[in-house]
Design a protein around this nucleic acid. Structure first.
Length: 841
DNA sequence: ACGCGTAATAC
DNA sequence: GTATTACG
């Protein structure tokens, strides 16, 4: 079968080239001149008006023809007649000097989007789906939905139309996913110390190209250089080592290799490897046709002429991928080393020497590992990442190259646009949504925010046994669905709907029509919660289970961002009343549930956004609560966690508990935060672990003794300067470039500046790793600045008192809650006395 | 180019 | 009180 991977446009004539993956031959099949893609522009002028008022349109070199079409204008709830101006490219500038859209500026719809996939098509095609080619047309291969999945869907909704829509989505998700033949490559170039090689200039020799493929070809192409790099008789496991005397030959071999694979995977290939290879090849005298890469400086990214390229750097730095698919395992880390270490448990080869100084053996090892890791990132867990990409292509309708390079808002945008075209709806202009639907009405608590968000219920401080946490399964998608929220249904034009108010807002919701966003988000949510999650639990075979898990996590990525985008001005369907109504319904749901719990006599200890902590509820009362929420709010509430005990302080988002399975849950406490010095984090964890082991009063007393010992020991080590600078360092991320900190000078900025100054003095250059996004490590010192970069500080400069203070406040978050005083625990009157005594000495 | 709420610390 | 960071 052929799987649609990519859609590209040949110049400005509007015809598309489709790139399919043939899963039998394992190669890319190109279909040029795809006629189904005729971009056009819609206008509210009649054909006669166009001919009369804008004769240039008809004379435009790209102009094709005029047609009349019926379109649904959802904002005003009416079908209207529009004129379709068919042109090779209505956005591009033709011989007349102006694009057709430019000419019809005030009367044009739907072509305001620069992005090339946002034209409207006569026949829509779905990236990632299986096709066969018949009579010059790609036809989607109808695949059946597994019986188990179909049963789950049909058992879910009575409405036949809704069930049919859900089955359509289930078809997308259930269609087979091909095994993809692919190769990962990584290049190394010979550059001088501290100079970052420029892919634009490509001045340095390409000295190594490593490759690692799905069909077992792996190796390193090396360039023979001076003798100091060692003997060429080197070996590297089962990797094949090939030496080239001539750099041109090396590039030729590399290009041949790339051409043999339908999919190329790199890490940062968009900004480095591919443009570098391209420009270097030109420099060495290759003709453009001899290079499989096409690259122009103003291109968004380099393209492979006959195959597909994915840059994993772009894909793995995508926020939604990090947070939702991988549980935020690798946080701010952007490097191959960090990502691979987190996901594969294996990092890059460490090296002290410069790449250009390495021996052949070292260079091969270093470079090969990069290619290996890059490949492994697509292959671990049975090709999990490839499967996710294909599924998300189907949900978003974005081609592989675009999906992996754009953020979630583009995915969701494209998904909704597709749906508009499918239904014959006009895609509204952002200004029109804003003008008709208006702004937010609630006031945000945080300065600078646009509207009111979630609520956090004040915790009841103390220690509680048998605590049960209930939560709403994807609360925001649920209320979008049950509240029928969508840009066209919120503040709809109908008089009778104005009584259907969203609690806590002046907004109302349509009672006549089902909202598009509500419908789609609702379907995705139900498929995830009731169908694929359930199926994953029920099926016997490990393979099937894993497959359903991939599907449900792909859905999760979309669901988690489905509310946020409506509150983002950058999103073209931005609709403040929708975003505001979503959080309002969320607040309504949690507060109503809390009241119900209290009415049933269940004490509510705490709650945040979509969860409630219930104190020792009886089975009976719990059942009643869950049922009444389902009946009244039509949202599922279910048991999320069970704690043996939980400790709350007076602070919100701060608690500590022991789960029934013995696992310890620490939330929000400073001792857990990434920026906290290792030494304090370690002490904190030790204290928590010790205390958590106790479940009776006597063992608790023993635990406290142990804690005392631990803390005293730490204080002694601190005072005796026995703790290394590394252990004492705060690690804080620079979220801006240094020059951008204008309001204040935070400590991490100070430390970064110190280091830069020092480097300038010593080497005349500055380290490359101090910029936006890098982590600055500093310790607190007794000097005037109070802070020193960890690389510049000496152990005897440490401000011991400051650290004792930090130790105290950190541990107090736990000890306070347990009714233990830090100072009493240590048998001193107070920490302040202690500090005073010390400073007098 | 997804959202808001809370805590802690430095300035 | 504001800025900054981290996290829920």
């Amino acid at each position: 079968m052929l799987y649609l991977f990519s859609v590209r446009y040949s110049g400005s004539d509007g015809r598309a080239v489709l790139y399919f993956y043939d899963d039998e031959e394992h190669k890319i099949v190109k279909i040029p001149d795809y006629s189904g893609h005729k971009p056009y522009l819609l206008t509210d002028l009649t054909p006669d008006e166009i001919i009369e008022k804008f004769p240039e349109v008809i004379k435009h070199p790209g102009f094709n023809k005029l047609d009349i079409v019926e379109k649904y204008d959802a904002l005003n709830d009416r079908w209207i007649r529009m004129t379709k101006v068919e042109a090779n490219d209505p956005l591009s500038i033709g011989g007349s000097g102006k694009s057709i859209r430019e000419l019809l500026k005030d009367h044009s719809w739907e072509a305001k989007i620069k992005y090339h996939h946002c034209y409207i098509y006569d026949r829509q095609i779905i990236p990632g789906m299986p096709y066969k080619y018949e009579d010059g047309e790609p036809k989607i291969v109808e695949t059946s939905v597994p019986e188990g999945i179909r049963k789950l869907v049909e058992g879910l909704v009575e409405d036949k139309i809704q069930a049919a829509e859900m089955i359509e989505w289930a078809k997308l998700l259930s269609a087979p996913i091909p095994k993809i033949k692919r190769v990962a490559i990584d290049i190394e170039v010979e550059s001088e110390a501290l100079r970052v090689p420029s892919p634009k200039l490509a001045e340095d020799k390409v000295i190594a190209v490593s490759y690692y493929s799905s069909d077992g070809r792996k190796g390193v192409y090396l360039l023979e250089r001076e003798e100091k790099h060692g003997n060429t008789q080197i070996s590297l496991g089962d990797a094949r080592i090939t030496f080239f005397k001539d750099e041109k030959e090396l590039l030729l071999a590399t290009f041949k290799l790339i051409e043999e694979y339908p999919l190329l995977v790199t890490f940062n290939g968009d900004s480095f490897d591919l443009p570098y290879l391209y420009n270097r090849a030109l420099k060495l005298g290759f003709k453009k046709e001899e290079i499989p890469i096409s690259w122009k400086e103003r291109d968004e990214y380099p393209e492979l002429r006959n195959s597909i390229h994915i840059d994993l750097y772009k894909f793995f730095t995508n926020k939604s991928m990090r947070v939702y698919a991988f549980g935020n395992k690798y946080r701010e880390g952007n490097t191959l080393d960090e990502i691979a270490s987190a996901l594969l448990g294996k990092g890059k080869v460490r090296h002290e020497e410069l790449i250009s100084e390495m021996t052949y053996q070292r260079l091969a090892e270093y470079s090969f590992r990069d290619a290996e890791l890059t490949y492994e990132l697509t292959a671990f867990n049975d090709d999990l990442v490839i499967k996710l990409i294909i599924l998300m292509m189907r949900i978003s309708k974005l081609p592989m190259e675009d999906l992996t390079r754009h953020n979630i808002s583009a995915w969701i945008r494209n998904m909704f646009y597709y749906e508009h075209r499918q239904r014959g709806w006009l895609i509204p202009n952002p200004e029109d949504i804003k003008r008709i639907k208006g702004d937010t009405s609630t006031r945000a608590i945080i300065k600078g925010k646009k509207y009111l968000g979630a609520i956090v219920i004040d915790p009841l401080p103390g220690m509680y046994f048998n605590v049960l946490v209930v939560d709403f399964a994807s609360l925001y998608p649920s209320v979008i669905k049950t509240g029928n929220l969508s840009y066209e249904t919120v503040r709809c034009p109908h008089e009778e709907c104005k009584r259907n108010i969203v609690p806590g807002t002046p907004h109302w919701v349509c009672t006549r029509r089902r909202g598009m966003m509500a419908s789609i988000i609702g379907i995705l949510r139900d498929l995830r919660v009731y169908v694929y999650k359930k199926a994953a639990k029920e099926v016997k075979s490990e393979d099937e289970k894993q497959h359903y898990d991939v599907i449900q996590s792909a859905l999760k990525v979309f669901l988690n961002a489905s509310y946020g985008v409506f509150g983002s001005e950058a999103f073209p369907l931005y609709c403040p009343p929708v975003a505001e109504s979503t959080t309002a319904l969320g607040r309504y749901a949690i507060l109503k549930t809390m009241r119900k719990a209290v009415d049933l006599g269940i004490p509510v200890l705490y709650g945040d956004t979509d969860s409630l902590f219930l104190w020792n509820p009886s089975r009976d009362k719990l059942e009643k609560l869950l049922q009444s929420v389902l009946d009244d709010l039509k949202i599922d509430l279910s048991v999320d966690k069970e704690y043996k005990w939980v400790v709350f302080s007076e602070r919100k988002k701060n608690y500590l508990g022991a789960l029934k399975d013995g696992k310890i849950d620490v939330k929000g406490l400073v001792g857990k935060k990434r920026n906290t010095p290792e030494f304090i984090k370690k002490l904190f964890t030790d204290v928590v672990t010790t205390l958590s082991k106790a479940d009776t009063i006597t063992s608790f007393e023993e635990a406290i003794e142990q804690v005392k010992d631990d803390i005293r020991e730490s204080i002694m080590r601190l005072k005796n300067n026995q703790i290394s600078l590394d252990q004492l360092a705060f690690n804080v991320v620079l979220t801006k470039d240094l020059q951008e900190y204008v309001e204040t000078t935070p400590q991490h900025k100070k430390a970064a500046q110190q280091l830069l100054r020092e480097y300038k003095k010593l080497y005349g250059s500055t380290p490359v790793n101090i910029m936006k996004g890098s982590v600055v490590s500093y310790v607190k010192t007794r000097d005037r600045e109070g802070v020193k970069h960890v690389q510049l500080a000496r152990i005897d400069e440490i401000d011991t008192e400051k650290y004792l203070d930090i130790m105290k406040t950190t541990l107090e978050q736990v000890l306070d809650a347990l009714g233990i005083s830090f100072d009493e625990l240590l048998g001193i009157q107070s920490i302040d006395d202690f500090l005073q005594i010390k400073s007098k000495k």
